[in-house]
């Protein structure tokens, strides 16, 4: 008997498979392929205080083992979400994680208040969007500003747990993880996309109209695994691990590295059923290895003892 249930920062997930913000809209489209109640949770498309039109196209570029996107937080605004999308999502037995993005620290507070008032299951602070000019990434790149946004969110979120989504586009992700934990974050999600760029050699123009965009997909998986592992060593709050997961085996890697739950992102685009395959893959791994509870996998990596200096010398 495999128990896939996870208690994630006080939120009860029927399985550890979440779908990542920005890859799943508000659930309507993939809800045409399967029952959304099969998922652990849905991180909805990033919400801002006012609606946003997003960036001009092209917004998408193919890359080796992944893709770049520069959508630019196109969304109906938090009020539009509450009025038109949330009631539809609520019809499914699935936890709803509202992903929010503010231009100022105060805006994060207002967004949290509005969403706590309608009892979303969790808040995810996007302090790491690489595709908008103001706010976004700026908050996620210093421990001080990341902590300030986290503290403001906590003051306004009532009893709704606050998760902070970390950017990999930083020198030291561990210091930011520690800062948000100290500021009261209930969980961390990681990683957001890595800043990338592609150029059309025939036109000499960047493929993306935004010039740069966020890299996602299998190409970023090892970076994400390494970062989850490093952050796990430094914080004790739960981690939602993501970055290039397409299979159950990928997900198990994240759990072993220290994640408590995982999110499927770009893989949805390749295969609408990817989250369900990932879930079933985790269950098969557990069965094959005689593991009864999925939470026993978390942080289960057995790292090698550091090798002596001579190992490195041989390479140089």
């Amino acid at each position: 008997m495999t128990d896939l249930h996870v208690n994630f920062a006080g939120v009860s997930l029927k399985n550890p498979v979440v779908v990542a913000s920005g890859t799943f809209g508000f659930g309507r489209e993939y809800g045409a392929f399967y029952d959304l109640s099969e998922l652990g949770a849905i991180c909805v498309k990033g919400l801002t205080l006012s609606q946003r039109a997003g960036n001009p196209p092209p917004r998408i570029a193919e890359t080796p083992g992944g893709m770049l996107n520069a959508v630019g937080l196109q969304n109906p605004g938090v009020d539009g979400f509450i009025a038109r999308e949330l009631p539809e999502l609520r019809r499914h037995d699935v936890k709803i994680i509202a992903n929010i993005s503010g231009n100022t620290v105060e805006e994060y507070g207002i967004l949290c208040q509005k969403l706590a008032a309608v009892s979303v299951d969790m808040l995810e602070l996007n302090i790491s969007c690489p595709n908008v000019k103001e706010g976004g990434l700026a908050f996620g790149t210093s421990p001080q500003s990341a902590a300030a946004v986290t503290a403001e969110a906590k003051r306004n979120a009532g009893t709704v747990p606050v998760m902070v989504k970390l950017s990999p586009n930083v020198t030291d992700i561990v210091s930011i993880a520690k800062a948000v934990e100290d500021a009261g974050a209930d969980a961390i999600s990681m990683i957001n996309t890595l800043l990338g760029m592609r150029i059309d050699i025939h036109t000499r123009r960047p493929v993306l109209r935004n010039n740069t965009g966020g890299l996602s997909g299998p190409a970023i998986l090892p970076i994400a695994i390494r970062m989850v592992y490093q952050v796990r060593q430094a914080v004790s709050i739960p981690i939602l691990g993501m970055g290039g997961i397409t299979t159950g085996e990928d997900a198990v890697e994240f759990l072993l590295a220290g994640a408590n739950a995982i999110a499927v992102g770009s893989a949805n685009f390749q295969n609408p059923y990817a989250p369900l395959l990932v879930r079933d893959g985790i269950a098969s791994y557990m069965q094959e290895n005689g593991i009864s509870r999925v939470d026993r996998l978390t942080n289960g990596v057995q790292t090698w003892t550091p090798c002596r200096a001579s190992c490195e010398e041989e390479l140089t």
């Binding site: 993939y30 997003g54 196209p57 996107n69 196109q74 685009f269 609408p272």
Partner: peptide, 27 residues
């Protein structure tokens, strides 16, 4: 337009409309 999901979820394939909004080419 360049697309990712093709089903309307990712907002990757934007077509600019006269009212300034972007519609999804795929959906």
């Amino acid at each position: 337009e360049r697309m990712a999901c093709g089903v309307g979820a990712c907002l990757g394939c934007a077509c600019k409309m006269k009212d300034g909004s972007y519609q999804r080419v795929c959906h």
